[in-house]
């Protein structure tokens, strides 16, 4: 991460609309710019470049994520979807060889700014991973983990409330109410993934990042999660990576298509699937490449 470039970007990116319009004029096509027409952007990236060592993984990605909607990232394997997603809560900071250039904003504030606290950022942007990864602790302790380290609950009672509320919202409470002390690993795969969602929302984030949250699950469990995502979007801005085009169509409002590190096309899900502008998108959504 080179900070001078970020600082440089921060000044420019404060006026989101301005920079978005620059993107629009340069790219020409309205749905190949960063801007998505419609609701206000919760998060936005401008000219995001990511390198792992010498290998460039993302080129110049500019994209707006609208608030309280589900945005899906699709694209062939290795095209940089996860990389992009992990830039949004700075998970890539943990990888030595990863270099990020460009700008990412949350509510208009640069998240790569020097004074941005990563710990606090991650309370605002939660993450759910591909493989369910509950801690080797009880169900209760799993969900209580975030509130505990951040000191979100004032007392035991409030903590109970947060844990039960989160489990409830994740649609898991009825299944585990009588065994909150049982180990989280003992649950089924789908339940574990919902536990991970409950764990993420227990810190009351505004954005939830999900990297292929259903790819390790069977169809029934997948359906439960998809329903859950659609319920959750009323409260959270959700960004998910998926390899299933059906899932993107069912769940998401907006879709972004990545190819070989480039953001090729994005827009309303129905547009991207039914009326793709780019040949690569067309080939991908019709199943000819990927």
């Amino acid at each position: 991460m080179t900070f001078d470039s970020v600082e440089h970007m921060v000044t420019e990116a404060t006026d989101l609309e301005h920079s978005a319009r620059i993107g629009a004029t340069m790219a020409g096509e309205p749905n190949q710019t960063g801007e998505i027409p419609g609701g206000p952007a919760k998060m936005a990236s401008r000219n995001l470049q990511v390198r792992y060592g010498d290998k460039q993984a993302l080129y110049d990605v500019s994209l707006d994520i609208p608030v309280n909607e589900v945005t899906a990232f699709i694209g062939p394997s290795g095209c940089g979807k996860s990389t992009y997603l992990r830039c949004l809560n700075r998970m890539n900071d943990n990888i030595d060889i990863c270099h990020v250039d460009g700008s990412v904003t949350l509510d208009g504030r640069e998240i790569y700014a020097k004074d941005q606290d990563v710990v606090q950022l991650r309370t605002r942007i939660g993450m759910v991973f591909q493989k369910p990864n509950p801690f080797p602790k009880s169900i209760f302790d799993n969900v209580a983990y975030g509130p505990r380290i951040h000191g979100i609950a004032r007392d035991r009672e409030e903590l109970n409330g947060i844990v039960l509320g989160s489990l409830e919202r994740a649609g898991l409470l009825d299944e585990v109410r009588d065994r909150l002390d049982a180990p989280g690993i003992g649950l089924s795969g789908g339940q574990q993934q919902r536990l991970c969602i409950a764990r993420a929302i227990a810190v009351r984030p505004e954005v939830i990042l999900m990297d292929e949250p259903c790819s390790a699950l069977d169809p029934i469990a997948t359906e439960r999660i998809e329903e859950l995502i659609m319920e959750l979007k009323a409260q959270y801005t959700i960004i998910m990576v998926t390899h299933s085009m059906q899932q993107a169509r069912r769940v998401s409002d907006k879709t972004a298509f990545f190819h070989l590190g480039h953001l090729v096309e994005h827009g309303a899900t129905s547009e991207v699937f039914e009326n793709p502008q780019d040949d690569r998108t067309k080939d991908y959504v019709t199943g000819r490449i990927g």
């Binding site: 998970m91 950022l121 991650r122 991973f129 990864n133 993420a200």
Partner: peptide, 18 residues
């Protein structure tokens, strides 16, 4: 210890030492 557990903890906003 699987990397995914560490990522989960960091993703929830733990500091490294936490």
């Amino acid at each position: 210890v699987p990397e995914s557990l560490k990522e989960a903890a960091l993703g929830l906003g733990s500091t490294r030492s936490e």
